[in-house]
Each structure stands twice: as structure tokens, then as C-alpha cells.
Simulated assay, not measured.
Amino acid sequence: MVKQQNQRFTTLIGIIALTTVTRLDSVMAPSIVKIQQTFPHADATQVESIASIGDVASMVASFIFGLILTKITYRHAATIGLCLLAIGGLLPILIHQNVTQLIFFALIVGLGSGAITTVLPSLSAAAYQGERRSNQFGLNVALEDGFAMVWIVVGGYLANISWVHNYYVYLITLVALILAILFVPNIHPIDQAAGQETNDRQNHWLLILSLVAIAMFVEILVAVMSNKMAIYLNTYHIGGPSTSGQALLFVRAASIVAGLLISLYRKTFGNCLLAAGFLSIAVGSLLFLAFHAFWSSALGAFLIGTGGSITLITVPFLLSNIANAKIYPIVMGAFSALTSLGFAFSAWFFKYTAPLFNNNNLTGTFRAMVLFSVIIAVSLMVTNLQKRADQAI
């Protein structure tokens, strides 16, 4: 018993080490303007892609590492991911003659991030059971978004000195690499559900596909805030870019709060938790429609962020109940890839759906968010999807 507790504690250190670097690519966002000034003849879209192209690589890596993780150990997968992060993040300190080089290194960073985000949930599911597992998923999200806020602040400070200095933050990957080698268990995913019936497995696959689709759609709903917040605040004369940044921090803050209080949320809403998350998004969207002030924007962003975080914490937990340990890395690889796709696809989705609700793009966007969120919430309650997944054996 004591040995098992010690093993879980050491694994927790490894998990925390991985959460520190999952959002490390956000450190470059504040430097885009400085990089454009350094390379004035470079295409502006290319320069902007330095901060975003990693998401594409991460999506591809999630699929790949979901498959690879069924063949290698958690430690080996984590080590590969951290080495990619270190290579892509530290080499630009020495090699930064043109934008193409920086984009190439950003792709390598994205591959590393995709590997880590696939390892984390699978490792957490293997190390913990029941309510403790749910709490660990929440803690992971809280730490990831908490560190993301830190890296954004640090990146903004370093960008004032030199955009090259931003890459020094990637030195933290070397610390994480050492901790991963020491504390991430050197074991393979174990099939704990080999004895399940074929028919039961078919039902589980239907649940898996439904839950992954829900997670992808919640990313579509939440990610639009990154595109619309600045436009919304400017349109209604609430504030400029700095005010937009402050309002968007409430989305991150919501993730931290939801991650730390997920156990309380589960006890409060029970098997209606996923539905409550989408209703939170609907209420947050209504605030943007009903009021045009900073307080309502901040509160709306917090509620939308809360709904998204609840879903992205709960779905991996439910997936761990209905996917056996051997295929769980593949499932989570698909989960990570499709949620990344949802984030990237969000702007295009609302570009075509918002006009269906109103000629004003902002109004149409928030009306669409309300309607889609309510429809999904009602569907979740009618189908009892969460309860079915929660009770699956």
C-alpha cells in the first residue's frame, strides 16, 4: 500500500512536469510584432503563423502519438515529446536568420506539444481511479492554463528586451525532461478491459464517438472568443486591445477555477454536468447580447470558459471509463487532434453560420452560440449520455 502511494506521488511529479510545458508555445505570441519589425520584407501572414502553425503540427502529432503510445512506454513518449520541444524552442536562439527557420522550429514545437498532450491524459487515467482520476484531470487543466498565463506574461516582458529572448523560456523543457526521466513510469498502457463482451464494446465505441464530437464542438464554441472579443469591445466602445486581453484572461481564469473545483461541480450537477457546461456557455453568450459593458464581457467570458473547461475535463474522464487502457491513448490522440481542429475551424464555422441568425456578424455569432449550446444541452439530458458513459464498465 505504501509502495503504491509512493508510486502515485512520483507519477504526480512527472505529470506536473509535463503540464508546465503543454502551453509553452504561447510564449511567442507577444513577439510577433517585434519579429515583423526584424524581418520587414517577410509576409505578415507567415510571421503570424509562427504563433499558430504549431497547432497544426500538434493536431498531427496527437494522432501519431496516440498510435505510438500503444507500442512504447509513457516515459519514452514523454521523453520524445520533451526533446522535440527543447529542440524546436532552443535552436532559434542560435539560428534565426529568417522567418522560414522560425516557422520550421515552431512546427517542431507543435509536434512536441501534441505528444505531451496525448501522454498526459493516458498517464493520469493509468495512475488514478474513480473520483481521484476526475480530480486529476481537473488539476491538469488548471495547471496547463495557469502556466499558459505565466508564459504569456513572461513572453510579453521578454519581448520588450528582444524577441530572441522569448526562446530562453524553453530552458524549462530541460528541467521537465529530467523530471520525466526520473518520475514518469516506464510502463506500457495495460489492457484492463480485455474481458468485455463484443456487443458491449460496440456500444462503447458509439459513446466514444459521441463524446469526442461533443468535445470538438465545445472548442468551436469557446475558441471564437479569441477572434471576436477585440472586435466586440471595439464595436461597442468598451475598450481597445489591452482591454480585450484583460477580458480574455477571464476565459483562462475560468479554466483554472473549473479545474480546481471539478469535484464540487460533479457533486452539484451529477450526470447533468456536461449539460450544465453548455448551458453556462449559453448564459455567457446571452450576456454579450443583453449588455455592452466590460463587466458583462468579463462575466460572459468567464461563463463561456467555465462551460468549455467543464466539458474538456469531464469528457477525458468519461472516455477513460469506456475505453480500455490499451486503446485509450489512441482515443485521446483523436480527442486532442479533433479538439485542436475545432479550435482552428471555429472562425470558419461562425463565418458561415452567424449570417443565418443576424446580418450583424457579432450578434449572429452570439445568437448561434446560444442556440447550439441549448440544443446540445437538451440532447445530453434527453439521451442521458453522461450517465451511460459514467456507469460503463
Rank of each mutant, 00 (worst) to 15 (best):
G307W: 05
L12E: 06
Q192G: 13
S134R: 13
Q5M: 13
I32G: 03
F147T: 00
L158K: 05
V60S: 03
L69R: 01
E197K: 14
G245I: 08
N6H: 12
D25P: 14
S210H: 09
A127N: 05
A44H: 15
S340L: 15
V382R: 09
K267T: 13
V109L: 00
V154I: 00
Y328E: 10
T198C: 03
Y168W: 14
E48M: 15
N360L: 02
S297C: 12
I161V: 12
V315T: 00
T173N: 01
V60W: 09
L248E: 04
Y265T: 10
L143Q: 02
T100V: 15
Q202R: 15
T45V: 15
T22Y: 05
G14S: 10
I322Y: 05
E219P: 12
H292Y: 00
I281L: 05
I181W: 12
M1W: 05
Q246V: 13
P355V: 06
R201V: 13
F372A: 03
N6A: 09
G89R: 10
A78S: 01
T339F: 07
S210F: 12
L261I: 08
H292R: 03
G270L: 07
V378C: 11
I87Y: 02
L174Q: 07
L111N: 11
G14L: 04
Y74M: 08
G333Q: 06
S255N: 14
Q4P: 08
S244W: 02
A377S: 04
E144P: 04
M1Q: 12
A194P: 00
I220A: 05
P189R: 08
L182P: 04
F350R: 02
P30Q: 08
S62V: 02
F105M: 11
V141Q: 04
S280G: 11
F105N: 05
L318Q: 01
Y74N: 01
G14W: 10
G110Y: 06
F63E: 14
N160V: 09
N384L: 11
L67W: 14
N234K: 15
L221N: 13
C272W: 14
V370D: 05
M216H: 13
E219C: 15
F302M: 02
V257M: 11
V169P: 05
